[in-house]
Nucleic acid binder design. Structure first.
Lengths: 329, 329
DNA sequence: TTGAAAGCGCTAACAG
DNA sequence: CTGTTAGCGCTTTCAA
């Protein structure tokens, strides 16, 4: 592979001039520019991007930290990020953590090593606090709500959505409501639990411990959830499920057992993917792809030195067949 | 950020010694090693990976070229690749092409620029021939069968699977069989069409043009496919569908129309994801994750200078409810 | 407009 | 065992 010196020699100019041509600097006499261009063509020259990056001090690459790419939620997110990144000529690397804090640390190390210019965090085994310590090495964007003032984040009004979901189920006449959490939206299920508790109190309903189910993420988990539901001693009449793969699994397993989902049990999902539409699952739609796009925007703004910003995206409750309002209204 | 020189100064040694410590070279006196280590700790030193890469001449990064990450087929593939890559301490970047040849070229450029050490190609807008020209800049692995001798590839015995799929449908008593292709497994649907034609000839069945459907990839496409099927004048009694998201869409839409899938129409899918199991779709299982793993292995072998290798992975026909053998056997 | 030369931060051959 | 020194390939002052 020829280098810039060889091009310079062949074109009869200095390396500086070659560099100028490559970087579209003004002040290069047309004739020399052409000589350089010709030399580059003849030698099939391509600049060594690593050398460029070393000299310039950045990598033109962003890191996306997520538990796994093998789930519609995260691949949707990445799609959004990628769209925007591509438009800026930036590349991206994936760091899959499986929620392992050590893996997250490796991603942070990559930032410090300058392998990437910044990080978008969609995994959260480490505490926000811990992660934010690394901000001095480059922008870090969170994809979940965070109280910390000194960082940018984009998120769904998740607790609000959660609340409205519960209200919807209540409006359908349910009191004995279970929740199945996915851990996608952060470790802060704390708030959600509070919301849940408050709502149940206002309904005058005691909560049974078995109504709070965690770690459900896949279709398979959903099937299992149905089984667990069947075996509950104090069986709830409705379930709020924070991921639609899980809702789908629940619904399909119910159908297999010839149990109709709607009046009771009722289920309300989150995310509204193609599958929930096809199955007629009532769901809270969250704009996951847009979340990715905005995450990248925030990264880009941070890079330009703008102040941190928190963005909260809207959601939308879509009633279909797995929930039925009381009094037909 | 401190650099190696500052560490050397602080530890009272040369930069070489520092470098040696970092790279776990033998022949460093214990006392000096400790001085270096201490200095690194005190200054919170981390090596600049870009400089390392420039000096060493590689990037420790692999590029994965695919149409989109937002589909179970490809995210499964990436999962497999990532597992192996992580075990080798390699990082990876994604290049999403949407089957755009220009985007594929950009990925190839990244190889030449030495942004990545190699490429795993799961997108194929460009011809194999064209892509292989870039092999001089680093290993390129194909995830589809290719006749070219000078490159490594891993693939499913896709044509064989396709053939057995057709045979299965024939064994179920079908003659009027349609096929829906997804373009996931390469532009070479040529061979598959041949297989199809031969099979139909041997069944003494003329092919209706409308029985060959292309470009079906998503659940939504599957719903549409059902509609298209209903509107066919010469309606086939069975469909071989090369992607299970599509089969699922077809099945769900059929159910919505209260049409039972099994005897007729029968459908046979490909890929066997969780969804097809949950829906009871007969499917040809292909080990997509393993394909990713082997792709990375092949990359790794190429890097070590091993000769190119073609690997063909097995498949497995799984009968469920959407196909029914004739004579109950 | 142009070029010489000093970096960017690390590695490795070579000499001791 | 250790240090000197010349790279890796490109960018960017600075002076002309």
């Amino acid at each position: 592979m020829p280098n810039i010196r060889e091009i310079a020699k062949r074109a009869g100019v200095s390396v500086t001039t070659v560099s100028r041509v490559m970087n579209h600097h003004p002040y290069v006499k047309e004739e020399k520019r052409e000589r350089v261009l010709r030399a580059m063509k003849e030698l099939k020259y391509t600049r060594n991007i690593q050398a460029v990056h070393l000299a310039k001090g950045y990598s033109n690459m962003i890191g996306i930290v997520l538990p796994t790419i093998d789930h519609a939620y995260f691949s949707g997110l990445v799609t959004g990020i990628a769209e925007k990144a591509q438009a800026c000529g930036m590349h991206f690397a994936l760091f899959q953590t499986g929620y392992d804090p050590l893996k997250e640390k490796e991603a942070l190390m990559s930032l410090k090593e300058q392998r990437v210019d910044g990080l978008i965090f969609c995994s959260n085994a480490l505490s926000d606090q811990e992660i934010l310590k690394w901000q001095e090495f480059g922008p870090i964007i969170f994809c979940h709500p965070t109280p910390h003032h000194e960082c940018s984040s984009v998120s769904i009004a998740h607790d609000q959505a959660f609340k409205e979901g519960l209200e919807h189920l209540a409006a359908c006449g349910h009191q004995r409501i279970a929740i199945a959490l996915a851990r996608i939206e952060g470790t802060n299920s704390q708030t959600r639990l509070q919301v849940y508790q408050e709502m149940m109190r206002s309904l005058g309903q005691d909560i049974d411990e078995e109504w709070i189910v965690e770690g459900k993420l896949t279709l398979f988990d959903g099937k299992q959830l149905f089984t667990e539901w069947q075996e509950m001693k104090n069986r709830p009449t409705a379930l709020l499920i924070t991921n639609d793969d899980v809702s789908a699994g629940f619904l399909l397993e119910a159908q297999r057992h010839h149990i109709k989902v709607g009046e009771s049990p009722a289920i309300l999902g989150f995310q509204n993917e193609q599958l929930s539409e096809a199955l007629g699952i009532s769901s809270i739609e969250i704009p996951i792809k847009r979340m990715g796009q905005e995450a990248f925007d925030l990264f880009h703004l941070s890079l330009k030195g703008e102040a941190p910003e928190k963005r909260v995206l809207p959601f939308r409750l879509i009633e279909r067949t797995t929930t039925v309002l009381k009094n037909n209204r």
